[in-house]
């Protein structure tokens, strides 16, 4: 039985110690926002934060988490960076299929937490571990800049869809 601190709550799970955090989150705790893409730390779809650091939960044995705080996409909006990132993601409408986006947002939020004003190069470096098969990279760059600066970047989508 392991005890995990996930999104501010203590969760118990009766699982083998080598079980990756990803599957504990998805199949045992029931938080399916964190995604499985490759299982070998190559795609970043499974990114969560442990004590604020982005990690690949598909490769992280649950026993190695200890009492550190796990934050997933479901709760990242409660952090200031997470909220800014999500808003910017909507403002430039980054998502396509959306499957990689939990991981993208987790990586982006971690980037802004440590580098509030990232350069283009910082963005590429921090986000290079997250694959998007739909190819949303151009807008990811725009959204991170918008989240950092608060200034509109790229094509701003109309939010409410109302008629003029």
């Amino acid at each position: 039985m392991v005890t995990l601190r996930v999104n501010g709550e203590d969760r118990q799970a009766d699982v083998p110690p080598d079980m990756p955090l990803l599957w504990v989150l998805r199949d045992v705790i029931g938080l399916t926002g964190t995604k499985f893409g490759c299982g070998i730390a190559q795609c970043g779809a499974c990114t969560v934060h442990i004590d604020g650091q982005p990690i690949r939960s598909c490769q992280m044995p649950v026993s190695a988490v200890g009492n550190r705080a796990v934050t997933t996409i479901e709760a990242i909006g409660l952090t200031p960076e997470g909220a800014k990132v999500q808003q910017a993601w909507l403002a430039v409408d980054v998502v396509q299929c959306g499957y990689c986006q939990s991981g993208q947002i987790m990586s982006a939020a971690a980037l802004l937490a440590r580098t509030p004003n990232p350069t283009d190069r910082d963005i590429d470096t921090a986000m290079a571990g997250n694959i998007c098969r739909c190819g949303t990279y151009v807008r990811i760059r725009e959204a991170i800049k918008q989240a950092a600066t608060g200034q509109p970047q790229g094509l701003q989508v109309v939010v409410d869809g109302s008629a003029a």
């Binding site: 190559q42 440590r114 910082d122 590429d124 470096t125 571990g129």
Partner: peptide, 27 residues
């Protein structure tokens, strides 16, 4: 630090760095 590089000479072996940040740095 764990999540961000420092100390590399800017532009030196940019290709190597690019590959590392994509496929390697997360582990």
């Amino acid at each position: 630090n764990a999540a961000a590089p420092g100390g590399d000479v800017d532009g030196e072996n940019a290709d190597g760095k690019r590959l590392f940040e994509g496929a390697c740095a997360s582990c």
